[in-house]
Nucleic acid binder design. Structure first.
Length: 896
DNA sequence: GAAATCTTCCC
DNA sequence: CGGGAAGATTT
């Protein structure tokens, strides 16, 4: 172990002057496995540490600006008794360096890394250990450096305001036992030294340090010789070329003063790097906006993104995927060159290809900006990879392969199966098929189908099937092939006529089909009919169903029947598919990836939508624009009944699994409803649990923000009545919905509604234009509503248990709820739902208490469980405000 | 001469 | 304060 001569000298000096605090002699370090060398740096002329072997740097996965390069000497030295400094609070790692010309006003000072805006700020703080007596702790500004050694003073200035005066570093604080040996450095700022002043500033600092060094060495202060000055100037000049102006660190020393000269009593410590927030080299990276958030798995999708200032040579776009445990399982880079970076604020790039080009359903990944120079990353944004568009060979009259087979019934849903040769078709092993015997008489067929039906565990289906059985049999009984065709055409024509009449009222009722398609559909139905007459086997049925589809458009008979609104034929097909349990055939999509359900929705064909849903058609099915039938229902202005049908709870599919799906544009059904200004649809979706705070992947807008942007006043108002609405979620540009509501071009009514909401929910105003209200009043309101904001998000189950513990309404709650019901007159409906309509006619009506109150109290008195029931009935009646009041009451009761 | 970067200025 | 941008300087 090598110890510099001078150090020994100093240590012995301390021992002399502070004999009561024996300092560990340097020799005791010799056996330390992690050695520390105390050496005089030739450049800075101060003591610097060289460290050998230190624990590897840890770079956290999340948003690393600058790795913490601080080496804490305490961790390296074994001694318990030697004085040492350690950090109580590191400085913040991001700070705006200001030029001297900017220092006129008062700007923020350097806070601690853990400083929180809402609380008292913290400041960089260090503590001296193993020492008693008074001591000087010094803070000065140094160049941050990655390898944690050879620290040099920085050309920037670390200033501290004392009253009016500004002091340059170093800043010395005298501390002692009364401070707990802690030095807090409050009110410091960093002045960005202009380029032209760097050399002079650096020289000034070096001269000062050299003077102190010389004084220590020689035991007295003296001016430096010209030779020394010239030497230092030279050093400053060469150093100024390599200095990084956008990152600094703080150095802390502990000294004792003897005869006007400072002697260090321990090793200095250095903070982690402090990055200049204003610089493109170290400032925050951010993706502000994306024009696409979806790419096919093969990549090469062109995407425009807007970003905060970047430097074109020092920026990358990283795509990555995390597994369930947040481990990175894939990453790749967006492709672009210098020319694709527009003025530091926009980048046009192409997506990389996904690790698996053959994915069959969308995959969620992330995009982020990455800055190679310091490893900094932006906040990640959501991005999705979707299956490549399938390539279909056109021009073949007859496909060699048919789609759909037994593989449908066994394999995972959502994946597009490979074509299977017709001859290899195998049937699933199902009791239906083994029990089936060939039948020659159509009337017997219904019996068989009925038997098969018993194996399908769905009452709903049986209902629909039975309802249409006659129709089914009649088609089957028609023996004459030409007659069937004729019949079909007749049906189609009649339908067409009827539909044309309706089509004038609303759009999208019927979709175009080609003659070829129509012919094909007719043929399928025809063959199915004749097949039933003769060689009745399930194999053949499936074969027929599979056999015909048009290669270029990939339409099958079911699609065509639905497009033509020929429900009769469509039902026949459906029934056969269900009878043979070919549920996957019902979900088969055409070349725009539209399933029969998509088509039925687009045609506003309510009965067909209903039938398809009963046959387990999936609402989470995505068309080529990633629209679900739900999206289409809203976008095509389908009648609300269709939307309602789609949201009916079913055993085979959970509403939650599709209600919040984003289409290719990143829109959820709720967002489309807002765009289309469909309040009824919005209410319905919200009631069914659509996520009202879901942020848009392109710009971070929440639904409320879209409503404000679109100036849809009643929608804004409605959204604000919802319990779980969060009006504070900021978009990618740090604008919250409420801030948008106060912008110049927002309409007055919206501004007022939002203002009221914010007052009610004690959200602080930060808008200048806000007219000043009576602040005292506001305080009262604030307190009142503080409890309100704390309403935790509960699952229905949790809510129910809470309700079950309560057997009466508080008088206040009763009043408020009654008031609401009196106004809306919904108490009548409530009474009906509670099955106490008789009350209405009874004598209570003559008393002067409100009917709502009467209904509520009666119900509660007669039935303990009724509060929970009432709540849910109210919810069904769209009395959200009343529900909210009740929820709050119940939750407050629990707290007591 | 245009773009990038630095510095000052302003709200 | 943080954000934006104009003006100045460098590349």
């Amino acid at each position: 172990m090598i110890v510099n001569q001078q150090n020994t000298e100093y240590f012995s000096m301390f021992e002399k002057s502070m004999s009561s605090y024996p300092l560990t002699p340097p020799s005791s370090l010799e056996d330390s496995p992690q050695s520390v060398l105390l050496v005089a740096s030739p450049n800075s002329n101060t003591f610097e540490y060289e460290t050998y072997e230190h624990s590897p740097m840890q770079i956290p996965h999340t948003f690393a600006v600058q790795p913490n390069i601080m080496i804490d000497p305490n961790s390296l030295i074994k001694t318990e008794t030697r004085p040492s400094l350690r950090f109580i609070e590191q400085p913040t790692d991001r700070f705006r360096f200001r030029y001297k010309s900017e220092m006129a006003g008062t700007h923020g000072s350097l806070t601690g890394i853990n400083s929180d805006k809402s609380r008292k700020p913290t400041y960089p703080t260090v503590e001296l250990k193993n020492f008693s007596g008074r001591v000087i702790v010094r803070c000065s500004i140094y160049q941050s450096n990655a390898d944690g050694k050879d620290f040099l003073p920085h050309a920037h200035r670390l200033i501290m305001k004392k009253g009016k005066e500004e002091h340059d570093d170093p800043h010395d604080i005298i501390i002692g036992p009364e401070d707990g040996y802690r030095a807090v450095f409050q009110g410091m700022g960093i002045i960005h030294t202009a380029k032209k002043n760097i050399v002079s500033e650096l020289t000034r600092k070096k001269l000062q340090l050299r003077r102190e060094f010389v004084a220590r060495k020689e035991g007295e202060l003296r001016e430096l010789s010209t030779k020394e000055q010239v030497e230092i100037k030279g050093l400053a000049e060469s150093e100024s070329k390599s200095i990084n102006l956008n990152i600094v660190c703080l150095r802390f020393d502990a000294f004792i003063k003897d005869n006007g000269i400072l002697y260090p009593i321990c090793d200095p410590i250095y903070s982690h790097g402090i990055n200049n927030l204003k610089s493109a080299l170290t400032g925050d990276l951010k993706i502000v906006r994306l024009d696409h958030v979806v790419s096919p798995a093969k990549g090469k999708k062109e995407v425009f993104i807007l970003v905060e200032r970047v430097t074109k040579k020092n920026i990358k776009i990283r795509f990555y995927e995390l597994d369930d445990e947040d481990r990175v399982v894939w990453q790749d880079w967006g492709q672009f060159n210098d020319l694709d970076v527009h003025h530091q604020y926009a980048i046009v790039f192409k997506t990389p290809k996904y690790r698996d080009e053959n994915i069959t359903s969308p995959v969620r990944v992330f995009v982020e900006l990455f800055r190679p120079s310091d490893g900094a990353r932006s906040e990640p944004r959501d991005f999705r990879y979707i299956p490549n568009k399938p390539i279909f060979k056109a021009g073949q009259k007859r496909p060699r392969y048919d789609y759909g087979s037994s593989s449908y019934s066994s394999s995972n849903p959502g994946s597009e199966e490979l074509p299977v040769p017709i001859d290899n078709l195998q049937l699933e092993q199902s009791p239906i098929f083994s029990e089936m015997s060939p039948l020659s008489v159509p009337s017997g067929l219904s019996e068989e189908i009925k038997r098969a039906m018993n194996n399908i565990n769905s009452d709903e289906f049986r209902r629909i099937f039975d309802a249409h059985m006659d129709e089914y049999v009649s088609v089957c009984e028609t023996t004459d092939a030409p007659k069937v065709a004729e019949n079909m055409q007749l049906i189609t024509r009649r339908k067409t006529e009827a539909l044309l009449a309706q089509a004038e009222k609303s759009e999208g009722i019927k979709m175009e089909v080609t003659d070829q398609e129509r012919r094909m559909a007719i043929k399928v139905v025809e063959e199915l009919r004749s097949f039933y007459r003769t060689t009745h086997t399930p194999q053949l049925a499936i074969r027929i169903l599979n056999h015909y589809f048009l290669e270029d458009k990939r339409t099958n008979a079911l699609h065509i029947a639905i497009c033509q609104r020929d429900n009769q034929s469509a039902l026949l097909l459906l029934k056969i598919m269900v009878t043979y349990r070919q549920f996957e055939l019902i979900k088969k999509s055409n070349n725009e990836q539209q399933t029969p359900l998509h088509l039925a929705v687009l045609c506003f064909n309510g009965p067909m939508v209903n039938s398809l849903l009963m046959c387990r058609a999936r609402i989470s099915a995505l068309d080529s624009d990633l629209n679900t039938p739900l999206h289409l229902a809203i976008n095509s202005n389908a009648p609300i009944e269709i939307l309602e049908m789609l949201l009916i709870k079913r055993e085979c599919e959970n509403v939650k699994d599709f209600i919040d799906l984003e289409n290719e544009q990143g829109n959820t059904a709720l967002l489309l409803a807002i765009e289309k200004k469909k309040l009824a649809a919005i209410k319905l979706l919200c009631k069914e649990g659509a996520d009202i705070n879901k942020i848009h992947p392109k710009n971070g807008f929440v639904p409320l923000r879209f409503a404000i942007e679109k100036q849809h006043t009643d929608i804004v108002k409605f959204l604000l009545t919802l319990n779980s609405i969060d009006a504070t979620i900021k978009d990618f540009q740090n604008v919250s919905p409420w801030a948008a509501a106060f912008s110049k071009d927002a309409n007055e009514e919206i501004t007022k509604a939002v203002q009221k909401f914010m007052a009610d929910n004690s959200i602080p105003f930060e808008v200048k234009e806000e007219p000043e209200d009576d602040s005292e009043d506001e305080m009262e309101i604030d307190e009142e509503f503080e409890v309100k904001k704390e309403l935790p998000h509960l699952t229905p189950d949790e809510l129910e248990t809470m309700y079950k513990k309560v057997d009466t309404l508080t008088p206040q709650c009763l009043d408020e709820v009654s008031d609401i019901l009196d106004k809306s007159e919904n108490w009548k409906c409530l009474a009906e739902l509670l099955e106490i309509e008789h009350l209405i006619d009874s004598e209570i009506i003559k008393s002067d208490i409100s009917m709502s109150k009467a209904v509520l109290t009666y119900s509660i008195e007669t039935n303990r469980d009724s509060i929970w029931m009432i709540r849910n009935f109210l919810e069904n009646l769209d009395e959200f405000k009343a529900v909210e009041i009740m929820d709050r009451m119940v939750q407050e009761l629990q707290k007591c």
